[in-house]
Each structure stands twice: as structure tokens, then as C-alpha cells.
Nucleic acid binder design. Structure first.
Length: 641
RNA sequence: GCUGGCGUAGCUCAACGGCAGAGCAGCGGUUUUGUAAACCGCAGGUUGGAGGUUCGAUUCCUCUCGCCAGCUCCA
């Protein structure tokens, strides 16, 4: 046996993985719930057949979490079968932060059912039943599960190619499972069922709906509590809640689902984002353009949208003798802009950028606050270039994207290349060529990326960048898509050096994705406490009594004239209340103006969440604010007098 | 779109076949205040909408619209 510390020892054949791990110190390593044998996770009770490298698996390791949660799912399945014997087993995998198990049952599980199941789970854990692994021949297993009425298990085994399958038995629940598991049910210390919901068998909406129960488990109560606390934190940061509370956005039944009303405060933040965006695009060689919200349906026929994107489009409308279509994308307009002139190779690359508002019909069940809506503004751009310029252009876009995302405080990314979907225009060869160009650009940047098979848009492959927020959740925003098809469909050309017409390549890209989604993510990232450069109100001047109103107004005026967003709170309320409300409105700076300040020409500065920073001259505060806003600082430094 | 849950005042929530209520917010007054809630008063509702059952419906039933969770699909 070889061990991770580099030592090796001899052990007789048939020694279990657990016994092997105990060889060094005489007992099992702390927290070991399974073992990695030559990198493969196995039960501690698994006998070793040959020489191998053996390492312990603990909950702290990704493999350990999987084992732990998977075992938890089995225990839940046992509890469900005990209480609802007619429920049929399907699948019950570990997931990111817990596990679920899908059951075929005649009715959905109620919250009361979950309580009963949870109580039964506790009994099973207390009984500390061992998980026993057994192997069966394929046919034998099918017959076994058929007798038990587990049709779904039979269907699964029928899909397998292996001759033998493994099953696990704990306390009479015998479930088809690859394993491994914790040694016994008593190893699960803190477990909680979270929600019940419907889910289709094999994730296909044509299949019957199963009853899914989600849960999570941890080795200690404290870890579980910390996780539940995190869920509460996420709820508090919910952009739908904060968006309303902070008067950023509103949605209205009368307006319609998935359509956002940007209130003055939300609009102020948006304006800062857009100003930054425009400034940067000008500096990065883009031409800023505008296009209409509707166009003749024929345009969308040419682009292929009516054929490949129809289910996401609002119905066309008839105007005079022709049909018009509300735009689901901006690309055809930019294409027509390209076509407004005869283009030379000298013109390329041509970069058109637009904050273009598009409308897409989304199935009602998928709408979600600002993150999934029916009308949204893309920070869209289309680059027209020669084939040999693709890599360079994509590389520039990638650099630009990361610069923009970083400015808003997102530093963690996941990058994915999406390949040809089932419904697609263009030849396999064109797709392969475009995909290769994207991968080449990523490689030239030294960027790690994954592949999302079949996830491309209908007109071309894409690079998607998912950002990770402070809570570790990822969101899809940025996208770069190569398009060989639209230039073809629209017959785009440019005159080459050789005096012959050539076909340009098109690249679609969005950095933030959509302003709505990006704003929703920003709200959650900062829990509504925006960096000062973005904050709807950057400072509030708080007059202590009516006597100080003139002075407070004067201070507010000076700051406003210097270009800052400042309000004066002159109400005849106590200062405690004004502070409280300013803190709750998440205003970065509160400037208290009373007798002392009025006399000295100062303000007492209080920072959001940071308390009183003391008095300073208005000029000193202004300089501090200027520096912070111009530098687009993500956090506020304590100002110094 | 599918499955389930939920729609009561601007917000958060009570009442669950028998007179629709509270806190906060709002409005009016008093208070002139020093770093996260001063006090008093007033007003606020076709209980999402339509139909039905009932002597009587916020409550039970049907339909419909919307929201929430999950599934499926996406910026």
C-alpha cells in the first residue's frame, strides 16, 4: 500500500480500504468516510485486490461531500419508502450544496410529509445501520428490482452496458448505486430537508413528473446552521426585494410580466453604468449606433430568426400592407448599417455598438426579477472583420470584457465554449472553423475554459463568461459569438486588396449581457450598497435643526455643483432618525451639519456602515469624494480631514 | 409551458364560513433635536379578477391573471 505521505506498507490480500488507511497510525484517519484507491473513490469496507495507493476521503474534499450527500440521499429514500411504501425510487444524486432524490409517487409531498420524513431520517441515523455493498448480474438486478416494483430502476439498468451492477443495502432499503457510501447511517450528523418540487423523469418535459425532495447535510450542526444562515443572507440580498425597498425598480401587473419599470434611483445607477460603457466603447474603437425597435418581418426571415428563433419572438404585427416584428436581437440592424455603404478591406474591422433594447417571448414559468425578463437592453456590439482578424478581435473583446467586469467588482470567472446546437444554420465545417477560432483566442490569452456541447446559438458557436458573485453563485452575462451565417444570408461583402469582393465574418458580443440582468446581479453583489460612483445618492447632508437648514443646503449645493448626487435632509426630525433612514437607503456618506460645523465651515462625515469619521472641511470631503468616484473605487476609504 | 404553493392597506403579516385587523410607511399636528426609530391624531380595502355553492364567502368549488419554488429553456 502506498500512502499520500509517500510511505508504503505491506498488507495481506483482502485488507479493506479502511484497514489499509489505519495501518500507519493504528486507527482510521480523522474524518475519513471513504477512500481513494488509485484515485477511485471506494467504501472503507471495500477489500483491496492488489497493490494500490490509498488516501482517505473526508467531507472537506469535493469527493467527500459527494459521498456524504449521496449517503444522505439514500437515507432520505429509506425514510420515504418506510413512510410511503408505494413511492418508487428513481435517482438521488449529490448536488452543489446538498442532494435530492426523485420519487414517483401518486401525489406531491407536503411540508408536513417532509417533517415526518425528517423525523424518520433521525431514527435511521440513530439506528446507525451499515451501508452494505453487493454486486449483481445485470439480469439478476433487473429481475430483483422488477419484483420490488421499482420500474425506474429497471429502466436505468437496461440502459447500462456493464455486466454487473452494484446495489447498496442499508436497513432494508436496497438501491441501485455505484457508491461509495459512508460506512453507516450514523455518520450523517446534521441533515435537513429543504423543499419539495416537481421534476420530470430524465429532465424531459414529455416524461412523467416525479416528486423531488431537496435536502442538505453536514458533519456538524454548526456547519448546517452556517449554511442555513447563508441561505437567509441570500434571501436578504434578493434583488427583487432590494429593488423594491431601495426604490430602484418596479414591476406592475398592469404593465405585464417580465417588463421592468426603472424608477429614478435605479435609472440613476443605470445611467452611470451606461456612461461608463459609452466612454469605454469610444476609447476601444467602437462606433456607437442606434436602431429601431421594430422592422419588417422580411428582415427577420432573411436573418433566419423566423425559422430558428420564432418561439422566443413576440407575434408579428400588421402595419398597412406588411408585417412588422418587435426585435428580439439587434444584429440585423447592424448588418443593414454595414450594407449602407460599399466596404473596403481598409474599413475592417468595423465595430458597431449599441445599448439595444430587445423583446423576447419567454415562457411564463422562467421569468425571474431582473435576471430573466421579456424586455431588456443588451450592451450589444457587432464586429465585421476578415477571417484572419477573428482571433485578434475575439482577443480584444476578451480583454475588454474582463476590464469591464473587474471595474464592477467581479474578479472570478468561468469560461465556456458552446458548440453547435441541434437547430442551427450553417454547415458543420463552418461551425468547426468558427469554434476553432474562439478556442484559439482563449488559448492565446492563456485562459482555462470548458466546453458546453450543443449550447451555441443557432447562427454560430460562442464563448460564454460566467461571473461569480460574492456569495459564490455564477451568472451568465458576457458572450462572444462568431457568425459565418448572417454575412452569407445578407450577402455582405467588402472589396479586398485584390479588387475582388470578399465575405466578412461577423462577431456578436455583449460584455454585461443585458443591463437588466447585470443590474440585478450588481444589486445582489453589493446587497444594495453600491460603490459610491454608482450609488443613486452619494451623500446626504443632515441638518440637525431648522437653524442649520441654510448651511446644509449650501453644502449640498456646493457638492451638487461639483457634479455629485447629493441630497439635503432638512426635515424636523431627530438626527438619529435621519441617520437610520440614510443607512437603510444605503447612502455612502452622511454629512452632519450643526452649530459647530456651521461655525467652522465643516461637516461631520459618517460613512455607510462605518460610523462617524469626524469633522472635515467641505473642500476636504469634496476632494475625497472626487478621488473615490473618479477612481471608481469599489469600497469607501475612511476620509481624512 | 409543466408540477406544486401563494395572492388581504404602499410594505410585512393577522383573521380561515358570521362586523376585515396590527406594525411600519403615508398625511395633519406637537417637538428643534448631535450619529440606526420622539409623541399625539387621521386616513388607508370591491380580500388579484370573473363565476358558482351558501341565509351569509377573505374563508369552500371552478375558471382566469399574477407571484414564488422546482423542472424545461435562456442575456
Amino acid at each position: 500500500m502506498k500512502f499520500p505521505d509517500g510511505t508504503s506498507r505491506k498488507a495481506p490480500k483482502g485488507t479493506t480500504a479502511g484497514e489499509a488507511l489505519a495501518l500507519c497510525t493504528g486507527k482510521l484517519p480523522e474524518g475519513a468516510i471513504a477512500a481513494l484507491v488509485d484515485g477511485k473513490p471506494v467504501d472503507l469496507s471495500r477489500p483491496l485486490e492488489a497493490d494500490a495507493e490509498v488516501r482517505p476521503v473526508t467531507f472537506e474534499m469535493p469527493e467527500g461531500k459527494e459521498v456524504y450527500r449521496h449517503s444522505s440521499a439514500h437515507i432520505m429514500a429509506q425514510a420515504v419508502k418506510d413512510l410511503f411504501p408505494t413511492a418508487k425510487l428513481t435517482i438521488g444524486p449529490p448536488i452543489e450544496e446538498g442532494f435530492y432524490y426523485d420519487f414517483a409517487y401518486e401525489r406531491p409531498f407536503t411540508p408536513e410529509d417532509l417533517e415526518k420524513i425528517e423525523a424518520r431520517i433521525q431514527e435511521i441515523i440513530r439506528a446507525n445501520q451499515p451501508f452494505r455493498r453487493r454486486e449483481m448480474k445485470r439480469a439478476e438486478a433487473i429481475e430483483f428490482f422488477r419484483q420490488r416494483g421499482e420500474d425506474y430502476k429497471c429502466e436505468m439498468i437496461q440502459g447500462f452496458t456493464d455486466e454487473t451492477v452494484s446495489v447498496y443495502d442499508q436497513g432494508g432499503l436496497i438501491d441501485l448505486c455505484r457508491g461509495p457510501h459512508v460506512p453507516s447511517t450514523g455518520h450523517i450528523h446534521a441533515i435537513k430537508l429543504l423543499t419539495a418540487a416537481g421534476a420530470y423523469w430524465r429532465g424531459d418535459e414529455r416524461n412523467p413528473m416525479l416528486q423531488r425532495i431537496y435536502g442538505t447535510s453536514f458533519p456538524t450542526r454548526a456547519l448546517l446552521d452556517a449554511y442555513l444562515h447563508k441561505l437567509e443572507e441570500i434571501k436578504k440580498r434578493d434583488h427583487r426585494k432590494l429593488g423594491r425597498e431601495l426604490d430602484l425598480i418596479a414591476v406592475s401587473d398592469e404593465v405585464g410580466p417580465g417588463l421592468i419599470l426603472w424608477l429614478p434611483k435605479g435609472s440613476t445607477v443605470r445611467l452611470q453604468i451606461e456612461n461608463f460603457w459609452r466612454e469605454q466603447h469610444q476609447q476601444h474603437g467602437y462606433a456607437l449606433v442606434y436602431s429601431p425597435h421594430v422592422a419588417r418581418l422580411d428582415l427577420w426571415k432573411t436573418s433566419g430568426h423566423t425559422e430558428y428563433y420564432r418561439e422566443n419572438m413576440f407575434a408579428p404585427m400588421q402595419v398597412e400592407a406588411s408585417d412588422y416584428q418587435l426585435k428580439p436581437m439587434n444584429c440585423p440592424f447592424h448588418i443593414m448599417m454595414y450594407k449602407s455603404h460599399l466596404r473596403s478591406y481598409r474599413d475592417l474591422p468595423l465595430r458597431y455598438a449599441e445599448l439595444g433594447t430587445v423583446y423576447r417571448y419567454e415562457r411564463s414559468g422562467v421569468l425571474h426579477g431582473l435576471l430573466r425578463v421579456r424586455g431588456f437592453t443588451q450592451d450589444d456590439a457587432h464586429l465585421f472583420c476578415r477571417a484572419d482578424q477573428i482571433e485578434e478581435e475575439v482577443s480584444r473583446v476578451l480583454d475588454f470584457t474582463f476590464f469591464v467586469l473587474k471595474t464592477f467588482g467581479f474578479a472570478d470567472y468561468q469560461v465556456c465554449v458552446s458548440t453547435r446546437p441541434e437547430k442551427a444554420v450553417g454547415s458543420e465545417a463552418a461551425w468547426a472553423q468558427a469554434t476553432a477560432a474562439l478556442e484559439a483566442a482563449l488559448k492565446s490569452r492563456g485562459m482555462a475554459y470548458g466546453i458546453d456541447p450543443g449550447q451555441g446559438v443557432f447562427y454560430g458557436p460562442k464563448i460564454d463568461i460566467k461571473i461569480k458573485d460574492v456569495l459564490g453563485r455564477s451568472w451568465q452575462c458576457s458572450t462572444v459569438q462568431v457568425d459565418f451565417n448572417n454575412p452569407e444570408r445578407f450577402g455582405l461583402e467588402f472589396m479586398g486588396e485584390d479588387g475582388q469582393p470578399h465575405r466578412p465574418i461577423m462577431i456578436h458580443r455583449a460584455l454585461m449581457g443585458s443591463i437588466e440582468r447585470f443590474f440585478g446581479i450588481l444589486i445582489e453583489q453589493y446587497a444594495g450598497a453600491f460603490p459610491t460612483w454608482l450609488a443613486p445618492v452619494q451623500a446626504v447632508v443632515i441638518a440637525i435643526t431648522d437653524k442649520h437648514a441654510d448651511y446644509a443646503q449650501d453644502v449640498a449645493r456646493r457638492l451638487t455643483e461639483a457634479g455629485f448626487r447629493v441630497e439635503a435632509d432638512l426635515r424636523s426630525e431627530k438626527i438619529g432618525l435621519k441617520i437610520r433612514e440614510a443607512e437603510r437607503a444605503k447612502i455612502p456618506y452622511m454629512l452632519v451639519a450643526g452649530d459647530r460645523e456651521k461655525q467652522d465651515g465643516t461637516v461631520s462625515v459618517r460613512t455607510r456602515g462605518g460610523g462617524n469619521a469626524g469633522a472635515m472641511t467641505v473642500a476636504a470631503f469634496l476632494a475625497h469624494l472626487q478621488e473615490e468616484v473618479e477612481g471608481r473605487a469599489l469600497t469607501s476609504a475612511m476620509p481624512k480631514a
